[in-house]
Simulated assay, not measured.
Amino acid sequence: MRVVAISRILDEADIIEAFLRHTAAYADHHVILDNGSRDGTLEIIRALKDEGLNLTVFQNIAVSINERAFNTLMYYHAAAELQADWVLCLDADEFIDDRGVQDGLRVALDHTMREAPHRLCLALPYFDYVRGAQEIADEPIVPVRMPVRRTRANRLRKVFVRAPLDDAVISNGNHGLMLRGTWLPAQGLPGLRLAHYPHRSLYQMAAKSAKGWAKIQAAGPAEITRGTSRHYRPLFEGLRDAPQTHLLDARPAPARDDPRLVADPITYRGGPLRYTADTDERMRAIRGMMGYLDDLTARYGRLIETCPEARAMNDAWNRDVTRLM
């Protein structure tokens, strides 16, 4: 049995090394598609590849959302080029947690493949781990630093998918599998889940939300209407309209006795870190947002330079004057 992980990434320097080392304990190979990282993420990945981790890295600098196409492209690369039997669809802030699986993930996947060949994908619940409550200051390994999770799983699930499958499509966010135009129901595997670390610092979350919602807006009004990644919108608009509220005011840490939280550290399987620097999160956030702004404006300039209709529309917008007072 051959297991391959696939991941899209963008500016994940604080977590990427721990994520790749941990996932390597479960997967034979990891396919990565970088969307234009500027914060040192690629340098860390290059060092890990030089060290011997089995990594394939692509890059597509997308200034608008195109997750489904990227996820599906990586799936077919894993299936066709790497002969995957299972493809683990993971974001860089999601860590496999198989403590509740007898004999571990790989044995369970092998058993499922042999004993239930009709099960083409598994749906994993994922739990958000939070900052503040019992957080271990100065610990560079994020899953070790943040041992407290929320008691309820997220409403959506993430999928691990059998391979090879013809006409398969992996959804935005890795939340589902479409096969020949139909979304497949997916069952879970008892005890298997993901630990999710989306909010690791105020500045990391601010930059993530700013880039995330900007990509939705750059994709056009239809994407906004569909509700794609709408969870980024409130923080994006808050940063736009009142950044001091989100970046200067200290947020209270969750109470230790909050019934919605439980100390439940995962078993981190990646070993020590070698390449993750102690980075100023404010400067890392600025680098990431400026990198995205650079890519976005460069694409915009090329568009109006090469498309007369876009040039005419841009000129019309630039001439538009509205009296405010």
Score class of each variant (00 low, 15 high):
L53E: 03
Y203H: 10
A195C: 07
D11C: 01
D257K: 04
L177R: 14
D85M: 10
D28V: 05
L248Q: 15
N66V: 01
R233V: 04
T267F: 09
I9D: 00
R114T: 12
R287S: 04
W86A: 06
R233Y: 01
V159P: 08
R99K: 09
R302T: 02
L105D: 13
I9M: 03
L239A: 01
L239I: 04
A312I: 11
D39Y: 04
L273P: 00
I44G: 06
T279W: 02
H30R: 11
N71L: 04
I224H: 07
A116L: 12
R114M: 11
H199R: 13
D258V: 02
G100R: 00
H231S: 11
S64L: 05
V3L: 13
K215A: 09
Y26H: 15
I45W: 03
N174F: 14
L73D: 14
R180H: 15
L105H: 13
H118A: 15
R319Y: 01
G188F: 08
L48W: 06
R162K: 14
R155P: 08
E81S: 15
P143F: 08
G227A: 09
D258W: 07
A250H: 11
A163H: 06
I65D: 10
A316D: 08
A108R: 14
T322P: 02
T225Q: 12
Y76M: 07
V3G: 03
R150P: 06
R269E: 06
T225R: 12
S229F: 08
R274M: 01
R287M: 11
L156Q: 12
V101R: 14
R287D: 08
T112M: 12
A137C: 01
A222V: 05
K49V: 07
V159D: 10
S201H: 10
N60T: 07
M1L: 13
I16S: 03
I216Y: 07
Y203P: 00
V144F: 02
R114D: 10
S64H: 13
G301H: 14
A78G: 07
S37T: 04
M146G: 05
S64E: 11
R233L: 06
L90N: 04
G132V: 11
A5L: 12
L156I: 08
L261E: 01
A153R: 10
G176E: 05
